[in-house]
């Protein structure tokens, strides 16, 4: 299909807005972490924190330069892939973060592959047969899942699969699994928990988006042309609900990178969220800042992607 120039201008605008937002966010992240109480040099030196040593270390770390020039330096470093060195264990942040991010993304990818098709099918089916037994069952189930804290879903999963049935290990060391079966077993519990939590959100939002388009005159018109319920929903309502659905999916998925702290804790899964929490405890500024940027970038790119999909799926905006 031929897309006109204005389409790409619109897409370009979206990307531009995302980029500007990213700069604002990086600004906020940098100065928010700067405001964390406690002097880095003092913390690093611990027992050996004599005033002279602290002053020397501050000088060496460039902490005495004005905050804004440090911000620009940091931003430039980020743009070229240099995230600085960890204060605590003196490793390149890129290496530290890279390994954890790989773990997080692997988990997110598996959950996404299961969750998106499942949630979309459930949401659309519930909307299609609105008020039916299926719809009610889906509504009750999703409302129960989103009403319950995540650690309850996780502990319930442990109780059922690890304690009572004994099928799966209670802890997960995904990265170290050797055989395929071991790999599946290692991932099963976090995946089950996250799938439950994320798809409940997605199902509810998808269902609401589809129902909103079902109540439009053009869907009634399709009914008056003799179309079946199935055709009304799939041919007429769904294509017009694509924008809101993409948005719902993006919002739910953005949760999978940073929002999984409980799951990472309960199953002892080495992901980015846990890395950041540990970094805060040790005041490891470069690491905290980099982690925060990872979350914001993933959120922004998902939201922007949804925005672009919405733009491309709407012929009004397209031409």
């Amino acid at each position: 299909m031929l897309r006109s120039l204005t389409t790409w201008v619109l897409v370009g605008q979206r990307l531009g807005i995302a980029l500007i937002t990213l700069v604002i966010v990086s600004f906020a992240v940098f100065f928010a972490t700067e405001m964390l109480p406690g002097d880095v040099a003092e913390i690093l030196l611990g027992q050996a924190a004599t005033p002279e040593a602290v002053a020397g270390l501050r000088e060496a770390m460039g902490l005495n330069e004005p905050a804004f020039s440090r911000f620009l330096g940091w931003l430039g470093g980020l743009a070229t892939g240099d995230m600085g060195r960890s204060y605590v264990n003196d490793i390149e942040v890129v290496d530290l973060l890279g390994r954890r991010l790989g773990n997080s993304l692997r988990l997110a990818a598996v959950v996404t592959m299961i969750c998106v098709p499942f949630a979309l099918t459930c949401g659309i089916a519930a909307a299609m047969w609105q008020g039916s037994l299926l719809d009610r069952a889906v509504s009750i189930l999703t409302i129960s899942v989103i009403s319950v804290p995540e650690f309850m879903v996780a502990t319930l999963a442990v109780l059922i699969f690890a304690v009572w049935l004994g099928w799966l290990p209670a802890l997960s060391y995904g990265a170290d699994a050797t055989s395929f079966v071991a790999l599946i077993k290692a991932y099963a519990m976090p995946v089950i928990t996250l799938t439950c939590v994320v798809s409940a959100q997605m199902i509810r939002m998808t269902r609401a988006a589809v129902i909103e388009t079902i109540n439009t005159p053009y869907v009634e018109m399709a009914l008056l042309k003799g179309a079946s319920r199935r055709r009304m929903v799939l041919r007429h309502a769904l294509p017009n609900a694509l924008g809101p659905i993409a948005n719902a999916v993006a919002l739910s998925l953005s949760y999978l990178v940073g929002g999984v702290i409980i799951v990472e804790t309960v199953f002892n899964y080495p992901g980015v969220a846990k890395l950041m929490v540990d970094a805060v405890a040790t005041r490891d500024l470069p690491l905290i800042q980099s982690c925060a940027m990872v979350f914001c970038v993933s959120y922004l790119s998902l939201i922007t992607l949804a925005d672009v999909i919405a733009t491309l799926s709407n012929p009004r905006l397209r031409q």
């Binding site: 005159p217 053009y218 009634e220 018109m221 042309k225 294509p239 017009n240 709407n314």
Partner: peptide, 13 residues
Amino acid sequence: YVPQSAAAAFNPS
């Protein structure tokens, strides 16, 4: 059926 508002009765996509 010919609707009152054709603008609303045509599927925009």
